[in-house]
């Protein structure tokens, strides 16, 4: 399988004192699900923004389908069109992503921008609305929705152009359990129909569920380890070092007892333990 993204020794910094990312080497094959995990501030969003061509590497290089790109590559209309239409990015903050007067406008914006006929755009929007259960909101402005609704609109706005690659930045943050499981299922199904998927998260249950390849970003802003989800999730030392889990102590029935905050191994205590 050819690589969708190929990053070589990529480094980036926002201010001249602190690195946001350094020495990233990563290849993302077509059709894969890749999870990028790391604690807050480890550089997940920065990495995704680099892959989406929103910021550009200061060190090293990044290639899309074998074509290296930099800021000036987007001045070429053909590359810009090909790149932007095949990569869909769901921002961490849905508010940041939505800018059209109504939900429906938001959904048809992409296809119209690509020059599709209006009826096709609306047809697709309808299907996406049904899939995401947004029927009641189509003519409302998005800033009046709840965060779960906004997240669904944000995903829908990206899906109507049918991109090959879908990139999600912390898709689970700030959502209730029902919306979370809805979105996990959706990501999984999108991968089943052949989309390449990249997800940044610090929710290990998402990683566990997707059974993806996992890249761990350390607090030193570089890749600590790459492996299968089972491999990574069983490496407790690694997870503690990367500040993805922590040890808690608590007491029940009078005995103090330590355990790890592995949310996905939901632990229940019955009687004595």
């Amino acid at each position: 399988m050819r690589a969708i993204f190929e990053l070589k020794n990529v480094g980036y910094q926002y201010t001249d004192t602190r690195k946001a990312l350094s020495n990233i080497n990563l290849s993302v094959p077509e059709g894969e699900i890749l999870s990028i995990v790391g604690s807050n501030g480890s550089g997940k969003s920065t990495l995704l923004h680099l892959m989406c061509g929103l910021i550009y590497p200061m060190e090293g290089s990044i290639a899309y389908k074998g074509i290296e790109f930099q800021e000036k590559s987007f001045k070429k209309a053909a590359f810009n069109r090909e790149f932007r239409s095949s990569i869909g990015f769901v921002f961490q903050n849905s508010d940041a992503q939505l800018f059209c007067p109504t939900v429906l406008d938001e959904l048809i914006f992409g296809p119209l921008q690509l020059g599709y006929p209006k009826n096709l755009a609306i047809e697709r929007a309808d299907e996406v609305v049904r899939m995401l259960h947004l029927e009641a909101y189509t003519d409302r402005p998005s800033y009046m929705l709840s965060s779960g609704e906004k997240k669904r609109v944000a995903i829908g706005a990206v899906l109507t152009t049918n991109p090959e690659v879908l990139i999600f930045d912390e898709p689970m943050s700030g959502l209730d359990p029902k919306t979370r499981s809805f979105i996990i299922d959706l990501i999984f199904e999108l991968s089943q129909v052949g989309k390449t998927i990249i997800v940044a998260t610090h929710h290990l249950d998402l990683v566990d569920y997707l059974k993806s390849r996992v890249v761990v970003l350390s607090e030193r802003h570089t890749i600590e380890k790459t492996g299968s989800s089972d491999e990574i999730l069983s490496d407790t030392d690694l997870l503690i070092n990367a500040n993805l889990i922590a040890e808690y102590s608590h007491r029940h029935n009078g005995t103090v007892h330590k355990h790890l905050s592995l949310g996905f191994l939901s632990h229940r205590h019955g009687g004595k333990s």
Partner: peptide, 9 residues
Amino acid sequence: QALKMRWWE
């Protein structure tokens, strides 16, 4: 930024 992500042409 969001516009840039959906601004193909």
